[in-house]
Amino acid sequence: MPKFGIGDRVSFVPGKYDNNITRGVYTVVRAMPVTNQGYQYRVKSLRDSHERVIDEVQLASAS
Rank of each mutant, 00 (worst) to 15 (best):
S11V: 01
M1E: 03
P14E: 12
V10G: 00
D8H: 03
V57Y: 13
F4M: 05
V25R: 00
E56G: 10
A31K: 15
N19A: 10
N20Q: 08
Y17L: 11
M32E: 12
V57T: 09
F12M: 03
M32Y: 07
F4W: 03
T22L: 07
N19G: 14
T22D: 03
G7E: 08
T35V: 11
E51T: 14
D8L: 02
F12R: 04
F4C: 04
Y17F: 11
N19L: 12
V57I: 15
A31M: 14
V10F: 01
Q58G: 09
H50Q: 10
E51Y: 11
I6W: 04
N20W: 06
S61T: 08
S45R: 12
K44H: 03
R30W: 02
R9T: 03
R30L: 05
V10T: 01
N19D: 11
Y41D: 09
I6A: 11
R23D: 00
G7I: 02
Y26K: 05
R30H: 04
S61P: 08
V34R: 13
I54Q: 06
I6L: 13
P14L: 07
V57Q: 15
K3N: 08
M32L: 11
V34D: 05
P33M: 10
G24M: 00
A62M: 14
S61L: 10
Q58S: 12
F12I: 00
Q37S: 09
V13I: 07
F12E: 00
R47F: 02
D55V: 05
Y41V: 03
D8S: 01
N36S: 10
